[in-house]
């Protein structure tokens, strides 16, 4: 058996990066060549990133992904290939007293 059915080991809603690490360990131990996502509804971006980081260099096929999972893998692939730009849009408001804090909070 060179195919691993993901749903049978992790269920249909997969969120943890650690689950991906466990899958990768299983792949190495059992010479898995195909990851079958039949029946899986959702994987987190973290899970997809961890799986993609390994499979891209190890000739592992990913099959039977639904639209959400397919696009999640495409998104992480895009980041790995093109990098990313971090834009800082967050302003840090100076607060010098409790009164200023209350005023800032109660302004809205």
């Amino acid at each position: 058996m060179d195919t691993l059915n993901i749903k049978s080991v992790l269920g249909n809603n997969i969120i943890l990066r650690e689950d991906a690490r466990n899958i990768i360990h299983y792949i190495k131990e059992n010479n898995i060549k195909v990851l079958d996502f039949q029946g899986v509804d959702f994987v987190s971006r973290s899970f997809a990133d961890e799986i993609y980081s390994y499979t891209k260099n190890n000739a592992i096929s990913i099959i039977n992904t639904n639209e959400v999972i397919d696009k999640m893998f495409r998104a992480v692939q895009h980041t790995h290939n093109n990098g990313r730009q971090i834009i800082n849009n967050i302003e840090i408001l100076p607060v010098n007293s409790d009164e200023e804090l209350s005023k800032l909070l109660l302004a809205y």
């Binding site: 849009n89 967050i90 302003e91 840090i92 408001l93 100076p94 607060v95 804090l101 800032l104 909070l105 809205y108």
Partner: peptide, 9 residues
């Protein structure tokens, strides 16, 4: 606000 804000505490 249309801005993201952080308030130091």
């Amino acid at each position: 606000s249309d801005k993201e804000q952080i308030i130091p505490l």
